[in-house]
Design a binder for these strands. Structure first.
Lengths: 331, 331
DNA sequence: CCTGACTACGTTACCGGTAAACCTGGCAGA
DNA sequence: TCTGCCAGGTTTACCGGTAACGTAGTCAGG
């Protein structure tokens, strides 16, 4: 990388400050100067140095950090997409990381990223290490917590309540006449948001006087196989269930596959419900009963909240992005 | 962000160079000095400034850029995951972007990222704008092109041949006795890699004397619905097919759903084959015939090739990561 | 006792931008 | 004619690190 502002300045016969102003589209130069500088910059193949710019100005870089639980989650892929579209349009660059549902890994990541002095951060979830929160508050950095809503965010929050998702599904299944519900989940210890859905589900059932009969929590990635084996295990312990709520749609589809292989009729013998709203779920022979999460909208809203804060525009600290329970033909 | 090296230096009664050496774990200081400096840094809540470090050293930052076609693709989620795990373990940070299968968008992204002077880049595909290639060659930056193999990479390449994938599937279906094949794809104009698979498929069929009968290329995201409608459209034009090859597994599953809804028996009336190896495909009542792509392995290999280059270790320029055709029960 | 090597630091000069203060010539108005 | 102002610049002083080099003190060996 050879050419810098000074090289251009010399070649164009102006000072490097003038070059800086021209290339950043400021004012205080004639049209001829502007054209000459631009031409020289072009011919020298000048590539701006954001490192120096962000460092020198000692403020607002155009880096934004985003930390998600897992990069392999289809849902978070859409959230990332929403964030990326909104930010790249405005000239920001996105640094990502995965915390594997661990607040310790999240803290390590945050420390790395903060040392790049980013314009802002987007974190997933409302649970963080105390040190993470201290660091971010002290740095007075714009932070958006997404996915799981909190009324007392570090800075801003965009999302919905996982507890309410679980409760709503519980109420729905009760209205459909289900009385003996089970639950199949995964990553039990680490995934606080899945846990919150289970808590909400359990609470809704208990309140109606038909408490959760059994649950199976696997220490595994929440995918198709986990759903399949999870339902198999659950049914081997307790045959007497009339509906099973799954951690997410992938697991629910795994559960459907297991039911089909055992000749269990869905929804006659057993109801099945998922969570997340993956596209595959809506195209099954029987549409999956699930909760659709507006993933891209959350990403977009988070990015916009962050940018509004950066520009000093007023914006609300907490943005609720509603989920939608979609009654299918499986529960 | 208040404390910097100088603050620590003053508080510890040493020069800031000594603080720099201590905090970076170098040599040239006594144990007492080390302990004192560390203690002071801790107590002041010092957060290193990588911006200044990368700028001052005027060389290799710990940023790595990665550009994928779409962030919503399940396959690329796994590639990202492989890259992220390998890089974050070594202290690198990942900047991502999506090019939407457009080399123009890719070039815009590359220009943005190069101005951060990253340690290296990972790009998807072998097709780039001439300006992109010039820029990268001139910057002498380590670059790994992944996904579609090329024998003449900008710098390094990790992947497999999409043409060969298509050809192999063509040969497989011919061996299974299929003679009248169709193809359903998406994003026809922009997705050169999907196009390469089609080319390979077409070539294999033609060579065997049973050329492709019909194809349907949708200008849409390659998802379940596109597969469903694509097959419907294809069959409305040409009923006389005995197998259909799809752009990817998601579309193939959409195709399966359409076949089921129309009472078309798979594989008796119609064979169906996909590509990619998504987990869902292997759990269908009838396992999908598809090509499994080692996504995570490609990400890992790309990251490792990049790091090897950065450390000056010898490594091969082209790494072939083989795909695996998995004969299922649908084709 | 002098020399040379080694340890444990300190000093200085940058890296490539940006902000802010500072020039300067020409022209309008008093 | 003098003054003030404005367009169109230039100059200077950083930002927070790092590399390269300088230097005082110590110690062993000849």
């Amino acid at each position: 990388m050879k050419a810098n502002l000074e090289d251009i300045a010399k070649a164009a016969g102006v000072s490097k400050m003038t070059v800086s102003r021209v290339l950043r589209g400021g004012t205080g130069f004639s049209d001829e100067t502007r054209d000459r500088v631009r031409k020289v910059a072009e011919s020298l193949g000048y590539v701006p140095n954001k490192l120096a710019a962000a460092f020198g100005a000692d403020q607002a870089s155009t880096l934004v950090g985003m930390c998600v639980p897992r990069l392999t989650s289809g849902l978070f892929g859409h959230v990332l997409d929403g964030v990326d579209r909104a930010l790249s349009r405005l000239g920001y660059q996105l640094i990502i990381g995965a915390n594997n549902h661990s607040t310790e890994e999240e803290e390590a990541w945050v420390r790395q990223i903060v040392s790049w002095r980013p314009a802002g951060l987007i974190l997933s979830g409302r649970t963080h290490q105390p040190g993470t929160v201290d660091l971010l508050r002290q740095a007075a950095m714009p932070v958006v917590e997404i996915w799981d809503l909190t009324t007392s965010p570090i800075d801003m929050s965009v999302g919905f309540s996982h507890f309410d998702c679980g409760a709503e599904m519980g109420q729905h299944l009760l209205r459909r006449g289900r009385r003996r519900a089970g639950y199949v989940g995964a990553l039990a210890r680490a995934d606080v948001m899945g846990q919150a859905r289970l808590d909400g589900f359990r609470a809704a059932l208990a309140e109606a006087g038909h408490p959760l009969v059994a649950s199976e929590l696997l220490l595994d990635m929440p995918g198709f196989y986990a759903g399949l084996y999870g339902l198999e295990t659950l049914l081997s312990r307790t045959r007497d269930l009339d509906v099973v709520y799954f951690h997410n749609d992938e697991m629910a589809i795994g559960g459907l596959a297991h039911a089909q292989s055992r000749g269990i009729r869905v929804p006659e013998d057993l109801g099945i419900a998922g969570w997340g709203g993956m596209e595959a779920a809506s195209i099954l022979p029987r549409r999956l009963t699930t909760t659709v999460v507006p993933t891209t909208a959350i990403g977009k809203a988070a990015a916009e909240a962050l940018v509004a804060r950066l520009k000093g525009e007023p914006g609300q600290d907490v943005t609720v992005v509603p989920t939608r329970l979609v009654p299918g033909e499986t529960g």
